[in-house]
Amino acid sequence: MINNNTKKYIFSRGIDDYFTGVHKAYKFTSLFFKEVIKKPFHIREVINQCFEIGIRALPLITLTGFIVGIVFTKQSRPSLEDFGATSWLPSLIGIAIVRALGPLVTALICAGKVGSSIGAELGSMKVTEQIDAMEVSAINPFKYLVVTRVLATSITIPILALYCSCVGLFGSYINVHTEETSSIISFYQDAFSTISFLDIFTGVVKSIAYGLTIGLVGCYKGYNATQGTRGVGKAANQAVVLSMFLIFIEEVIIVQVSNWIRYF
């Protein structure tokens, strides 16, 4: 048989590969939405993954949320002092943290911590044929490995984002309390007085979007890893870089949309 498979490119290798990659990512995402509604649901594995992700990211999110709260309050104070408006600090910090910083900081930390670990774990399973081993044992590896992890990131990250916001506000309170004595209750009352349901709702919605992104990107990169151990490192690295990039794009879009809703 004569080999007629010599590859011809439509544009150039780079451009063709880019569009092939986009198409593969689209198919991967569509497959997730198809599989997520099909039985079996592997609920135990989803809970297991939620627990893993939560435990893995919790210490770092606690620390970062706390520090962000302190630093943001410290940096905002001088400007407000110029106008004699330091009493606005709790509401300013509340809006900033609940609307933007809490979800964003959580997403970035999870992209680094969880996304890379999902990419590396699935990448390693791919190159050591563990995914093929599942396939030949009549177990759907996509359903068991990908769907469960993406669901887990989509459930856990909004919870972590709310937690991060609370810790951030507490950090802010510590700073406010050291400068001018105030009670924690009045601080939280002031902070939440300007936060609307829409703020919390958008925070949760965007955290779900970030969770989906981190899970899907990590799984996609790991699931399609090649080239042995080098490929595992590459998958982990690309999972972080691409999810962070997408998170920033989503942030801009969601802020824009929520502002339209807010002023509609």
């Binding site: 390693s124 050591t128 044929e129 093929d132 081993a133 396939e135 030949v136 009549a138």
Partner: peptide, 15 residues
């Protein structure tokens, strides 16, 4: 596939 067993070169045990 339930009727076929496949033993991998590097065993492919779930680590």
């Amino acid at each position: 596939r339930l009727r076929i067993g496949f033993s991998f070169q590097h065993s492919a045990l779930y680590d």
